[in-house]
Amino acid sequence: MKPCLPQDHRLSIGPFLYVFPGDESAYGPDIHAAHQQAFETVSNHLDGEALVFVAELTSRAIRTDDLTDKVAVYGRAGVPIYLLLDMQEQQSTVFWTPSVAGYESHCTQPFGEALHIPKPFDCTLDTTGFRAPEGPAKKNPAP
């Protein structure tokens, strides 16, 4: 994604917490991009409306939030692109066209298939190597 970033934007991973005006929600996305001016602060609380890209990798504990609440909040805040990597279903979904109701458009592809990321990125994400992390090894029960 980094080569597709709009000019003067920065791609980052935590530890930032984005707050959303008019919403009680605050999220710390797994991967995020915003104009570099958004990071010119000593606070780790940033303006959610500065985001241009968010990517979340689901986990069993917060998967429902990633699929519902965050779609609504990021869309209402006007985040142009929300990429959801569903590790449980092994598929990726890109949401775009933010609106007051969330997002108006989305496309889902299984891991291993290319996924087009719309403008302002306008690039293709190769998900060939994507896969859910291995769970803890199961021990064989004693005979």
Rank of each mutant, 00 (worst) to 15 (best):
A77D: 04
F130K: 00
V94H: 04
Y27N: 07
V71L: 03
H116S: 12
R131L: 05
D122S: 12
I62V: 06
F130Q: 02
D69P: 00
I13G: 10
L57Y: 10
A38G: 04
Q36V: 12
E24Y: 11
K2M: 12
E49W: 03
D23W: 05
H35T: 02
G135L: 15
P6N: 09
Y82V: 07
G102D: 06
G48Q: 03
T68L: 10
P143T: 13
E24S: 15
R76P: 00
T128A: 13
R63K: 08
V94D: 03
V73L: 04
Q109A: 11
V79L: 07
T124E: 15
A72K: 12
I117N: 03
F39H: 09
T58C: 06
P133F: 13
P110Q: 11
F39L: 11
R10M: 01
G112D: 07
T93C: 14
L57V: 12
T108K: 02
G14H: 05
L85V: 15
S105G: 08
P143M: 13
Q88P: 00
F130R: 04
A34E: 02
L85R: 01
Y103I: 02
P141H: 12
Q90E: 15
L5A: 02
E49A: 08
K70M: 08
G102K: 05
Q91V: 11
G14Q: 08
K138T: 15
P98H: 06
W96M: 01
D65A: 09
A132M: 11
A61Q: 10
S59M: 10
L17Y: 01
A137H: 13
M87C: 12
S59C: 12
K139N: 07
H116V: 14
V19C: 04
C107F: 14
A33Y: 03
F111D: 05
D122K: 02
R131Q: 13
F111L: 07
D69K: 15
L5E: 01
V71D: 01
T64G: 00
P110E: 09
G135I: 07
